[in-house]
C-alpha cells in the first residue's frame, strides 16, 4: 500500500493523484507545487480543487478517528478483514484501537 509501484492502478491518473497526496503530506511547498501544476494541467482546475479538498478532509478525519479511539464499524470488520491483512493495515499502531468490536 505504501510501495512505489508503477502505473495508475486501474484508476485514471492514479499515479499522479498518489504523487499529489504524497507531496501534500510532506508539507513542503517545493515538492507540492510542481505536482499541483501537473494535476491542474492534466485533470483541470476543478479537479485540482476537488483533489485538494479531499486530501485536506482526510487529514482531519484520520485525526478525529485516532484521537477518539473509535473501533471500525461492526458491519465493516468482516468484509474488510482480508484486504486489511493483505495491505498491512492491521500493523498500524492505531489498529490497536480500531480492531476492537
Amino acid at each position: 500500500m505504501l510501495g512505489k509501484g508503477d502505473g495508475d492502478g486501474g484508476i485514471a491518473h492514479g499515479r499522479l493523484l498518489v504523487r499529489f497526496a504524497d507531496a501534500f503530506l510532506t508539507r513542503d511547498e517545493a515538492e507540492l507545487a510542481p505536482v499541483r501544476r501537473e494535476v491542474a494541467d492534466r485533470l483541470g482546475d476543478e479537479a485540482l480543487v476537488d483533489s485538494a479538498a479531499v486530501v485536506a478532509a482526510y487529514e482531519g478525519l484520520d485525526r478525529v478517528a485516532d484521537s477518539m479511539g473509535i473501533p471500525i464499524d461492526a458491519e465493516r470488520i468482516e468484509p474488510t478483514a482480508g484486504l486489511r491483512k493483505q495491505l498491512g493495515v492491521d500493523g498500524f499502531a492505531s489498529a490497536a484501537n480500531t480492531k476492537r468490536p
Binding site: 493523484l17 499529489f20 473509535i70 484501537n97
Partner: peptide, 24 residues
Amino acid sequence: YRAINRAQIELLSARVSAINQCAY
C-alpha cells in the same frame, strides 16, 4: 459528484490515511 470520479476520490483518501497510518 465532483470533478474527479469516485475511484480517484477514494485513491486520494486511502493514500492520505495510509501515510497517516490511520487504521480506521
